[in-house]
Simulated assay, not measured.
Amino acid sequence: MEQRIIIEMGMGNDLHGMDYQKAARRAIEDAIRHSTLPIFQSIDIPHTEMRVLVTVGVQEPDQIDPEALKSGLPRGHAQVQVVKGGLNIPNAETGDTAVVATAAVEAFLPSQVGKWVQS
């Protein structure tokens, strides 16, 4: 059994290139930039015990390479899933479309129930 120890949300965009991969990478970076996990030093658990689940939302999920996004995750065993979401915002004046991606990064550890004693 696992326990979720953190969930962070992020947003990323590509304003001129319609690059879904770039927007998704930026969304993941935004999410993990807001967190730190001092629990690994505090209770002596190796970060390799952590499972990381990343969910990325973009308007064209087939434009994303989930395996390439894993390389930007600094810790744990990562899984990236891509779903329809985010936004495409067209600019009629320039013909550009801004791509907005959203990401949720969740981290799980094996259950710690019964392993902690309050002193």
Rank of each mutant, 00 (worst) to 15 (best):
M1A: 15
M1S: 14
E2W: 14
Q3K: 14
R4L: 07
I5N: 03
I6K: 10
I7T: 13
E8T: 03
G10W: 12
D14F: 03
D14C: 07
H16F: 08
M18V: 01
D19A: 01
D19N: 15
A23V: 11
A23M: 03
A24P: 01
E29A: 14
E29M: 13
E29N: 14
D30I: 02
A31C: 04
A31D: 06
A31W: 00
A31T: 10
R33F: 08
R33D: 15
H34Y: 05
H34A: 13
S35T: 13
L37I: 10
L37G: 02
P38N: 07
I39Y: 06
I39K: 03
F40K: 03
F40N: 04
F40T: 11
Q41V: 00
S42P: 00
I43P: 10
I43M: 04
I43C: 00
D44Q: 13
D44V: 13
I45N: 02
I45D: 06
H47V: 11
T48N: 12
M50F: 04
M50D: 00
R51E: 15
R51A: 13
V54P: 02
V54F: 04
V54Q: 02
T55F: 03
V56T: 07
G57C: 02
V58C: 09
V58T: 09
V58S: 07
V58Q: 08
Q63P: 15
Q63E: 15
Q63D: 14
I64G: 00
P66I: 02
A68G: 07
A68C: 01
A68V: 09
A68Y: 06
K70P: 03
K70C: 12
K70F: 10
S71W: 13
L73T: 00
L73D: 06
R75V: 14
G76S: 05
G76M: 02
A78W: 08
Q79W: 08
V80F: 03
Q81N: 14
Q81H: 10
Q81P: 07
K84N: 12
G85W: 03
G85A: 14
G86E: 01
G86Q: 07
L87I: 09
N91F: 04
A92Y: 07
A92M: 08
A92G: 04
G95Q: 02
G95T: 01
D96V: 12
D96R: 13
D96C: 05
D96M: 12
D96T: 14
T97F: 01
A98Y: 08
V99Y: 11
V100F: 06
A101H: 00
T102D: 10
T102M: 12
A103Q: 07
V105W: 04
V105P: 11
E106L: 04
E106I: 03
E106M: 08
A107Q: 05
L109M: 06
L109I: 11
S111A: 12
S111D: 15
Q112D: 02
V113H: 04
G114E: 10
G114A: 01
G114W: 00
G114I: 08
K115H: 10
K115W: 05
W116Q: 09
W116V: 11
Q118A: 09
